[in-house]
Design a protein around this nucleic acid. Sequence first.
DNA 1: AAAGAGAACAACCGCCTATTA
DNA 2: ATAATAGGCGGTTGTTCTCTT
Length: 309
Amino acid sequence: MKRKQERAGVMGRGRAPCCQKIGLHKGSWTPQEDIRLITYIRKHGHSNWRALPKQAGLLRCGKSCRLRWINYLRPDIKRGNFTKEEEDTIINLHELLGNKWSKIASCLPGRTDNEIKNVWNTHLKKRIKHQDYTTQSSMTNKSWSEVNPPSSSSSGITFTEGEELSLEKIEIPIEPQLDIWDILDSSLSPNASSSPPPPPAVENDDIFSDIPIDPDLWSDATNIDSNTKEVDTSDGGKLAEDSMKWLAYLEEELGLFDEAEEETMELISMQEGNSMGSYFHKRPPSSSSSSSSSSPSLTKLVDLKCINA
DNA sequence: AAAGAGAACAACCGCCTATTA
DNA sequence: ATAATAGGCGGTTGTTCTCTT
């Protein structure tokens, strides 16, 4: 940390910081910031990360917002332990691509490059070292993939004889990818039984009233485009209700639950066990790595040309 | 029950690349 | 063709959690 401070303290030299404004928040994101970011992106999208924090009223730099969204808040993030299949896929792809985490991540839907990088650095690397060690005595002059041929029951990546490193296509088993917003929307139907309320199409700005914003910090932020506030009042009642449900759900997941809102939460408690919950768990249960209970239900052909490009 | 060690994870930093003016 | 800018990527670090003693 000290080194960082010293480095940061060298003004006037080197590359300019991405954020000119001082006074921005750093470190862990608060639940309030998360809600603010989610709500803003849900409503306006994220076409311009640099301008986003200003317009969303966040005291963060755009990069920080982007990272938070991509690595944690994105609705299609798959959280929880990596399956054996996913781990084997990472190992195989790392063998091919090296530390190209984003490319590896592109072959693992729902996983982020950061997450994959962490998994690799924490235990996959060790596992490989161990495997190398245990096989060293009997195997010589063999690549890792030769020593550890992917079986059809593990990684799902198929190596055709003679084309080990020139894959055009790799079969990667993936979980069926559900659009979280579809899941949420489906929860509105009378028959829906296990999904959280849908995110609102319109934000309720009142929820931010407790978040102090320094008006000077974003002094040029007063021109938040009111035209982009696509408030559709034609169905205002339902939208407001959706907003309440969605925000209440977020608050519960983010630990902001207020007993005074119990009434609202009753709506949500009926939907426990929903898949959305996994997206907001503070931290997945202790990851003694691979779960053995995965059952890939889809096999996707991934065109590795995108990787080679 | 407390302390220490190690593991896991979120987030930051700075460089690189693509895009735009 | 060049410079400026924003987005993306990979390496690294600090904090928190879990396990062991």
